[in-house]
Design a protein around this nucleic acid. Structure first.
Lengths: 197, 197
DNA sequence: CTGTTCACTGATCGAGTGACAAGCCAGATC
DNA sequence: GATCTGGCTTGTCACTCGATCAGTGAACAG
């Protein structure tokens, strides 16, 4: 690959990384391309050059976030499948999911911001990223009746993620800092034991 | 009270109601005072007249939302306290909380949007509204050890609310419409039985 | 070495944004 | 019934937004 092409690639990646941060922190509309450019160390015009529009940049950010993290999540969840006892296996699965949610609160924020409105971005995100992830996690819901699957899915996601998504609030409200390793492990344990008694 | 004063009050309430909607749907920055004014059936200038700034309007909206809903929630939760069996009482409590979350998804959206950043609005919301609510719900966590309280709190909120906060996404992803009465009751039942085995 | 390509910059556009101020007129006051 | 108060409208301010585009210069091809 060319030196120019490598430079191009690296710049795009810097912009996408900054975009993931901004979109997760502020939401689509409130995130400005100028701030994204600034965090990436360039100017705003370059964003429209690489990604035709803000919408396209958002999709690129979603691709980077969900693509990378889905692979990472699968890699971390599969060892749990080796556990023999099925209930303990599911608990391991859940604990690992909670740890993952703690390390990547931007994933939940991204999903929640996109999922609340019935617009084109939501449709795209569901069809492109959420459905594959959802179906991949069916291994987890093996023992759950068909009509309860969606409930369990969202209960798990909510129970695991919310405390990390509102970490500043939790710190101020309860004094507990959910970013501490100890708190993460405790949360993982509580969620796992609640969902699999 | 004067006719003018009544008119004034009613107008302010219309604006606040529109503001609650907009802030919950779009977040603070992405919600525009012009859209709020339009939904309230007036013009943008009137907002600055009644509420000096957008920040003040946001606080007024939070006051209306949390104030009214905390009272309403307490009214709906206290009957559950009459149940004799302590575990069943807690389950009733949780079921009612889930129903409440289903009817008022804007509460969770509001809380989540405010709680993710460590800014002045978050501090104000915690000190003014969240802490009182949090402490009032201590009746619920009677049997829970001190250091697990925050975890249970956020697990309950997340498990109960997320599916309703991303209702459009849930509909498209799973085919289940979480706004249907049947789905709400099922969700309430699942959450209650999970959190109190 | 020469000419071309193309990642990148900086300026500018129209369409919003929140805050502000001057005027209007129904309703309160006397 | 004249006067005045104050809720409300309209227009405007400086500013930010995403998008567009001419211009620049280093890396490329021949």
């Amino acid at each position: 690959m060319n030196r120019r092409d490598r430079q191009r690639e690296e710049t795009r990646e810097r912009i996408v990384a900054a975009a993931v941060e901004c979109f997760a922190e502020r939401g689509f509309r409130a995130a400005s391309t100028r701030e994204i450019a600034s965090r990436a160390g360039t100017n705003q015009g370059l964003i429209t050059y690489h990604f035709k529009s803000k919408d396209e940049l958002w999709k690129a950010a979603a691709d980077a976030l969900f693509g990378s993290l889905r692979a990472q999540l699968r890699a971390r969840l599969t060892p749990a499948l080796e556990t023999v006892d099925p209930r303990e296996r599911t608990r391991q699965f859940i604990r690992e999911f909670v740890r993952f949610a703690a390390e990547h609160p931007e994933l939940f924020r991204f999903m929640l911001e996109a999922g609340k409105a019935d617009d084109e971005r939501m449709g795209w995100l569901v069809d492109t990223h959420l459905r594959p992830t959802y179906e991949a996690n069916d291994r987890f819901g093996a023992g759950v009746p068909e009509e309860l699957r969606p409930h369990f899915q969202y209960i798990l996601v909510g129970a695991a993620s919310v405390i990390f998504a509102v970490a500043p609030e939790c710190r101020r409200l309860t004094g507990l800092d959910p970013t501490q390793r100890e708190a993460i492990e405790r949360h993982a344990d509580v969620v796992a034991r609640l969902l699999v008694p």
